[in-house]
């Protein structure tokens, strides 16, 4: 029996327009997430990873043009009305954002913000909602949860606020969590705690997670699968162990080797020359070609498609990097 995927995205594209110019923020992105699966979406700023997440939830529609199909438990939700979408959001798919400071309403108590979600998506009564809110805060590791229900967001520290965000997101027992750089604004010791928490909850509640991050270390330590994005497209996709241990796309290789881990100290780091292209001015062929050291003549004219290679991996490159073992971690 083939397990039903939670979320299947096919050829998702999002285009914004600014001053009459079309900005292709996301192009032909396809991936799927199953129960209990943690998928990492890695890329640098402007690579389209956050926009992808927002497009899944229908949050980009207001600002741009979204095409492609988004299937939730087998049903295409890309054409859903805003009202129907609201049922999916929060209840079945939850999202947490990068900035724990600004994504909570500063004027409402934390308890109220959790029970609000519960009353929108469950049939619990007041007392049950309160009980559940305490349970949630407890679960995400906020000490003396019952007393803190009446506190306002500013009374919590950054890490605690992110926990509150997670508690709110998970209150209605979503089947899928979309996490947009949930730990970027936090310190490393707190980041470790939050990631552990997300992993634990994914396991216990059999919840799917899409984790957007720019930190390859976070991906390596938490995800099962990974998709690497560059200039709005997925350039390499596959199981984390395979992709990070033997990356084939020159961009993935560049990212991996830019991380100063296991290189002799104070030596020159490997660096990808140049900067990511602006969306207004994408190169005609492969978007990475101007920064790539493996280019052949067709790279500049033709765009490589994302195709299956070995063992469930996908790659969009004409001249993949083959043997790098030994040099990399």
């Amino acid at each position: 029996m083939i397990e039903q995927k939670l979320l299947e995205i096919e050829n998702l594209s999002t285009t914004f327009s600014r001053g009459g110019m079309a900005l292709p923020a996301v192009r032909d992105v396809s991936f799927s997430v199953g129960k209990g699966e943690v998928l990492g979406l890695v890329g640098e700023s402007g690579s389209g990873k956050s926009v992808t997440l927002r497009s899944v939830l229908g949050l980009s529609k207001r600002y741009g043009d979204v095409t492609g199909s988004v299937k939730w438990c087998g049903t295409d939700i890309s054409g859903f009305s805003e009202r129907k979408m609201r049922q999916v959001r929060g209840c079945e798919i939850a999202m947490i954002f990068q900035e724990p400071m600004t994504s909570l309403n500063p004027l409402l108590t934390v308890g109220l913000q959790i029970t609000e979600t519960l009353s929108a998506h469950t049939k619990l009564n007041g007392a049950e909602r309160r009980k559940r809110a305490i349970e949630m805060l407890d679960m995400v590791g906020i000490p003396s949860a019952a007393e803190r229900l009446g506190d306002y967001p500013h009374q919590f520290s950054g890490g605690m606020r992110q926990r509150v965000m997670i508690a709110i997101a998970l209150a209605a027992h979503p089947k899928l969590l979309l996490a947009d750089e949930p730990t970027t604004a936090l310190d490393v010791t707190i980041q470790a705690q939050i990631l552990d928490l997300i992993m634990l909850l994914a396991k216990e509640m059999d919840m799917g997670v899409v984790l957007v991050t720019h930190d390859l270390g976070v991906v390596a330590q938490t995800c099962r699968n990974v998709a690497v994005m560059y200039a709005g497209r997925i350039v390499e996709q596959g199981a984390v162990r395979q992709v990070l241990k033997s990356p084939h796309h020159p961009y993935t290789v560049g990212l991996m080797r830019s991380v100063p881990q296991d290189v002799p100290p104070r030596t020159q780091l490997y660096s990808v020359p140049g900067t990511p292209p602006s969306l207004e001015n994408l190169p005609a062929g492969c978007a990475f070609a101007p920064r790539c050291q493996n280019t052949s003549s067709n790279c500049k004219i033709e765009r490589p498609m994302l195709v299956n290679t070995d063992a469930g991996r996908k790659l969009a490159c004409f001249n993949p990097v083959q043997a790098l073992q030994g040099e990399l971690a």
Partner: peptide
């Protein structure tokens, strides 16, 4: 130990504060 390693097999990050 809190800094996540880019090596998926390196799970030495054991000390949690």
């Amino acid at each position: 130990s809190a800094a996540p390693s880019v090596d998926p097999d390196d799970t030495s990050g054991a000390i949690r504060l």
